[in-house]
């Protein structure tokens, strides 16, 4: 990056496609999307659930919580840009019988507020729903905003349920499910114009359950979050090359649906690939690997994940390619592993 200043003018990039702006969409051009699925789902649910309140740390507009805030202004708490106060106060209001949905960016919950979440919410098993935008690599803004290790951090916390939805459908169905769960939940949020993918599949979100979205004889992809969308796209493309790819979507990262994972991975003969929008350290991939090894199920196993590094700033498409989580990169890697 240090020779950037001497780059010839011909290399000058087409600016808007290559921006490291914080706000970036993960939707492909022309892809079907729905706006603010979390905000709308929460507002709908809250209409019949007076105990639900919303809280944020100066990121209501950027976590889609503004939809709830407009619908229920007197049930919305703006806590200022103070993530530690946000989380401890959410624990406090939960003690008094309310169900707070507390929003910020994933980095600030996982990194700055971790201790407050741990002791003031999770150790007491309080029903706080922590919903965080910009999970994994969903902004090109650089390491300050790229939550590449949020799952690793939160998986280490006992009691905490962790959810990584794939699309608008998943989010809409997850909101009532996590509200009904009696304990604390961390949900990774896709915000703004969110792709609609799972409506084409016979799918329902169930907390704690992995769902087989398609079957195939050569590869079993186990994925969560937006990598399920990428895995489905890759599976289509690989099918055209005669490679059969099954996709097992595991939106609940913790507790993991070990029964389904073991039975699918145990069917034998298939390469198991875990794909996640997260560092290769401590996320879904290592959770699955541990599950398989502990049960003595040992298929060929690969991970598609972000490298164990602080990532570059840049445009999301550039970075998803660079770090191997674009659809092209998934296809390339799977073919390479199959020697095709």
């Amino acid at each position: 990056m240090n020779d950037a200043q001497n780059r010839p003018a011909a290399d000058k990039p087409a600016p808007k496609l290559r921006t490291s702006a914080m706000i970036a969409s993960i939707a492909a051009p022309g892809q079907a999307t729905r706006p603010a699925p979390f905000g709308h789902a929460l507002a709908k649910l809250a209409a019949t659930r007076p105990e639900i309140v919303g809280m944020t740390a100066d990121l209501g507009k950027y976590t889609d919580l503004h939809v709830f805030a407009e619908a229920f202004p007197d049930r919305f708490y703006q806590m200022g840009m103070a993530e530690q106060v946000l989380m401890a106060a959410a624990g406090g209001i939960a003690r008094e019988g309310f169900i707070p949905f507390a929003t910020t960016y994933a980095v600030f919950a996982a990194r700055r507020a971790y201790d407050f979440i741990c002791l003031s919410i999770v150790e007491e098993n309080l029903p706080v729903k922590i919903v965080c935008a910009l999970p994994g690599l969903t902004t090109g803004y650089g390491p300050s905003h790229q939550a590449t290790e949020d799952l690793a951090i939160f998986r280490g916390m006992p009691n905490l349920t962790i959810v990584d939805p794939c699309d608008a459908v998943d989010i809409e169905q997850a909101v009532p499910a996590i509200a009904d769960h009696p304990g604390p939940v961390y949900m990774r949020l896709l915000r703004g114009q969110v792709p609609v993918v799972l409506d084409r599949h016979d799918y329902r979100f169930e907390l704690g359950k992995a769902k087989l979205l398609r079957d195939g004889g050569d590869v079993l992809m186990i994925s969560s979050g937006l990598m399920t969308m990428r895995s489905l796209e890759a599976a289509d493309r690989l099918a055209a090359d005669g490679i059969g790819v099954a996709v097992l979507h595991s939106p609940t990262i913790k507790p993991l649906d070990t029964a389904t994972i073991l039975s699918e991975a145990g069917r034998g003969g298939r390469l198991v690939v875990v794909a996640e929008n997260h560092s290769i350290v401590g996320g879904l991939g290592e959770a699955v690997a541990g599950t398989l090894l502990r049960a003595g199920v040992t298929p060929a196993f690969r991970q598609i994940a972000l490298p164990d590094a602080f990532l570059d700033a840049g445009a999301l498409p550039t970075l998803h390619d660079r770090y191997g989580i674009s659809t092209d990169a998934v296809v390339r890697q799977v073919k390479g592993w199959l020697d095709r």
Partner: peptide
Amino acid sequence: ETYGSDDSRLPMSGMASYTPGMEVSGGSL
């Protein structure tokens, strides 16, 4: 003209590792 573009020394959020004269990385307020 490289501002905010891929591999620029001038990313949209200030980072000490990218830019001469940027003393600290400041995106986490």
